[in-house]
Every structure is written in structure tokens, then in C-alpha cells.
């Protein structure tokens, strides 16, 4: 009984943390599902979202969540531009070329962050970042709860957008058969650019909540990319529900693993779980 009581906090924390992981992975999954690119720079774009919140907070005292109002269109534009002017051109050479360009973008971003914001660790400290609540033996920081709620809200919005709008249905059509999509009058290059823009806007949201939850440095993007890749593979590439479930599974494996084997084994446990699941269901939990 006491072990269950002790486990209650890691379980709740794991689920909530999973919300953040799935939010970070969502954009990566969307790009992979539609454009079939592995966006190596996704983690760095997430961190750009964290710095965006940081700048607004430090220089203008704007709440990081509020700064997203102006951040979302800016990040959409950045993502749109990356796909339209860089990756759509690389497509014509090969898919490997898109991977290398994304890798290049990743390195450029990391170094730019170091230049502007120095390698120091930063965080988004607000009036509510120390708030927490407890229910019985469980103690939970407020921002962790926000992570999960925001992840679910973003996923519902994305799902409804993909279901109800012409653009959304066109994005799904292009993901399933790009050639047939072109024959339907869909400019697939434009659709890819829009998809990348939407994914980058989601990265900005993820970045702000990452910054509220954890400290970050110019190089943090890479470690979160690795987590996001694990989540995307585990969830079945391109599936929204799969991303949420896998994010939570990943968060749980990490916190419960940490409870039993210590902090240093957190990632080891999480990735062992990814390997075991893939050995049993190679297409991921919700894979097609």
C-alpha cells in the first residue's frame, strides 16, 4: 500500500509531463505525417519559442502565454518560409537533402541562440511558476497541469481544423497520396508550406510551456528532439491521438523509471520502453 502511495506522485507527474512531451512532438509528427520529412530542427524551433517567451517576459514583462498571441503568426511565418524557400527546393533533389538542410538549420539556430542569449541556462519565471496544489499525498506544480491541458486543447483544435476546413482535408489528402492530391487541384508545395507553418506555430506553444516547466539553454533543442522522436515513433507517425498516448507513456516511463532506478536512469527506462513496444507493434500504437 505504501508503495502505491509513493508511486502516486510519479504517476500523476508522468501523465502531466507527457502532455508537454506530446505537445513538443505534435509538430514533428504533423510534418512527418504530411510532408514525410524528419525535421531535425524541430527541437530548436521549440526552444526558439522558449526564447520568444523569455524576451517578452524580460524586456516587456509580458506573460509568456500572452506573448503567443503575437508569437503564433510569427512562428507560422517562419515555418512557412523554411518549407517554401528551402525544403520544397531540396525535395527535387531527394529526401536526404531535406534532412541535411534541416540539420543545417538546427546548427544555425543553436549558434544564433548562443550568440544572442549566451549559453546560460534560462527559464520563464512568472508569478504562477511556483504555484502548486496537492490532493492527498500527491503534490503537483501548476505548470505541469497547464502542460497537459494545453496539449489536449491544441490537439482538439488541430483535429477539428484537419476535419472541418478545406485546407485541413487537403492536408490529409496530400498526406495520403500527393500525386492524386495534385490531380484534385491541390498545390502540394503550398500545402506543405502551410503544414510546416502550423507545426512551427505549435512548436512555439510547446516552447513557451517548456520554458515554464524546465530551464533551457541554446542546446536544449537536441535533447527534446530526441524525446519527441521517441514519442512520434512510439505513437505511430502522423497520428494525433497516438502522439498524446505515446507522450504520456513516455512521461510515465520516465517518472516511474526515475522512482525505481534513480534520476540518471529516467531516459534509459523510457527508451527501453520504446524499443520493447516497437518490437511488439512495429507501426507504433496508433500506426496505420
Amino acid at each position: 500500500m505504501s508503495i502505491l502511495m509513493d508511486l502516486a506522485t510519479p504517476i500523476v507527474m508522468g501523465i502531466l509531463l507527457g502532455g508537454l512531451y506530446s505537445l513538443i512532438a505534435l509538430g514533428l509528427s504533423l510534418i512527418f505525417g504530411v510532408v514525410k520529412e524528419i525535421n531535425i530542427a524541430h527541437g530548436d524551433l521549440v526552444i526558439l519559442g522558449s526564447y520568444f517567451g523569455f524576451v517578452g517576459l524580460t524586456f516587456a514583462g509580458i506573460d509568456p502565454m500572452l506573448s503567443l498571441i503575437c508569437g503564433l503568426p510569427v512562428f507560422f511565418g517562419i515555418g512557412y518560409g523554411i518549407q517554401r524557400y528551402l525544403l520544397n527546393r531540396a525535395f527535387r533533389i531527394s529526401m536526404d537533402a531535406t534532412l541535411i538542410i534541416a540539420f543545417g538549420i538546427s546548427i544555425i539556430l543553436q549558434n544564433t541562440y548562443q550568440l544572442i542569449w549566451t549559453p546560460l541556462s534560462r527559464g520563464l519565471t512568472t508569478s504562477y511558476s511556483v504555484e502548486s496544489f496537492s490532493a492527498g499525498p500527491i503534490y503537483v506544480p501548476l505548470v505541469y497541469l497547464l502542460d497537459l491541458i494545453v496539449a489536449i486543447v491544441v490537439m482538439i483544435f488541430l483535429r477539428e481544423f484537419l476535419k472541418r476546413t478545406y485546407m485541413g482535408v487537403a492536408i490529409r489528402a496530400a498526406a495520403q497520396d500527393w500525386k492524386a492530391a495534385q490531380l484534385m487541384g491541390i498545390d502540394t508545395n503550398r500545402i506543405y508550406a502551410y503544414t510546416f507553418g502550423i507545426a512551427t506555430a505549435i512548436a512555439a506553444i510547446a516552447g513557451v510551456f517548456l520554458g515554464l516547466t524546465f530551464p533551457f539553454t541554446p542546446l536544449s533543442g537536441m535533447s527534446f528532439l530526441i524525446i519527441a522522436l521517441g514519442v512520434v515513433i512510439l505513437g505511430g507517425m502522423g497520428s494525433i491521438a497516438g502522439t498524446l498516448v505515446a507522450g504520456i507513456a513516455f512521461g510515465l516511463a520516465q517518472t516511474i523509471g526515475g522512482y525505481f532506478f534513480g534520476v540518471s536512469a529516467q531516459m534509459l527506462v523510457a527508451y527501453t520502453m520504446v524499443l520493447v513496444v516497437l518490437a511488439i507493434i512495429p507501426r507504433g500504437i496508433f500506426g496505420r
Partner: peptide, 28 residues
């Protein structure tokens, strides 16, 4: 409009969504 060999409908869209996407261009 071209109906390609094999039809190439979108398998994971509903029948109605397939028809909807057929009228994607603004005129249609």
C-alpha cells in the same frame, strides 16, 4: 480533370471528404 489509373481515392478520408476534396479549386 484526370481520373488516374486505379482511381487513387484517398483511403483514409470518408466518401464525402473525397468528394469534397474533388471540389477544392475555388471555381468548383
Amino acid at each position: 480533370s484526370l481520373l488516374p489509373e486505379g482511381g487513387r481515392i484517398f483511403p483514409d478520408l470518408s466518401v464525402l471528404e473525397n468528394l469534397k476534396i474533388g471540389s477544392y479549386n475555388p471555381k468548383a
